[in-house]
């Protein structure tokens, strides 16, 4: 059983001499509740793959299935619906809205989904509590540390109760203490059965996943299955002490 599946997924940029195969015939299956890490050197196509999986970009070829539905054939409007109901995104640059407080940032996707404002507000507050930022709900992003911002972004990704959370280098802009906090958060999500796809070029972070997929030049170059949650926590502990 899979929740997210890519079949011979391909994305090309440019043409002729300038052709770049950012994603090259990638097959991938993600099971419900699984945490998959995608690693590889910079420029190998990790972000592009994630964008294709989330319907933010259209593949040149191949298929993307989410919960049994073909994303690659959907209209933009249908894709919006999928993003609203089934996906959550976390970005390296956080992408919080500068003029909105932490709580307003978190409730934004719910408002876009037509959730009544009071319900959205209640859910946002609960999620901020969950990521340990209840006391920062009224702060603007500028008044938060990098790690706090990313935790707000994770809360925002969760507000639509997504099937899958897609995270692109969620710790790429963070120092190691903040990284540890964000990783602890991902660890607890995983413990609750949230499906996660995390792109990273940091192999220590990848070690917290159920499965690590290595990419090279757009293609899958290897796959490692880690032994459950224990390995993840062990790696986390190692990171914290380093």
């Amino acid at each position: 059983m899979t929740v997210l599946r890519a079949v011979r997924l391909r994305k090309e940029y440019g043409r002729d001499a300038g052709l770049v195969r950012a994603v090259d015939e990638v097959d991938l299956e993600v099971r419900p509740g699984e945490t998959v890490a995608v690693v590889g050197p910079s420029g190998c196509g990790k972000s592009t793959l994630l964008h294709l999986l989330g319907g933010l970009e259209r593949p040149t070829g191949g298929e993307v299935h989410l919960d049994g539905r073909r994303l690659d054939r959907m209209s933009e409007t249908q894709l919006s619906g999928v993003r609203r109901k089934s996906l959550g995104f976390v970005f390296q640059a956080f992408h919080l809205v500068d003029e909105l407080t932490a709580r307003e940032n978190v409730e934004l996707p719910a408002l876009l989904a037509g959730v009544p404002s009071r319900t959205a507000r209640r859910r946002a507050s609960a999620l901020l509590e969950r990521v340990g930022l209840a006391d920062r709900a009224g702060h603007l992003p500028a008044a938060l540390s990098g790690g706090q911002r990313q935790r707000v972004a994770v809360a925002r990704a969760l507000i639509g109760r997504p099937l899958v959370v897609l995270a692109d280098e969620p710790t790429g802009n963070l120092d190691s203490a903040a990284t540890a906090a964000v990783l602890r958060l991902f660890g607890s999500l995983r413990a609750e059965g949230q499906t996660l796809v995390i792109v990273t070029h940091d192999s220590r972070i990848a070690a917290t996943a159920d499965r690590v997929i290595t990419m090279r030049d757009g293609a899958l170059a290897g796959e490692t299955r880690l032994n459950g949650g224990g390995g993840g926590l062990g790696a986390l502990a190692g990171l914290e002490s380093s």
């Binding site: 989330g54 933010l56 933009e76 409007t77 919006s80 619906g81 993003r83 609203r84 109901k85 995104f89 992408h95 809205v97 934004l108 996707p109 876009l112 989904a113 925002r156 639509g160």
Partner: peptide
Amino acid sequence: QRFTSLARALGATPRQ
């Protein structure tokens, strides 16, 4: 542009 792109990523339709 960044705000509207973000709104799109968070599920707003192109028409919205």
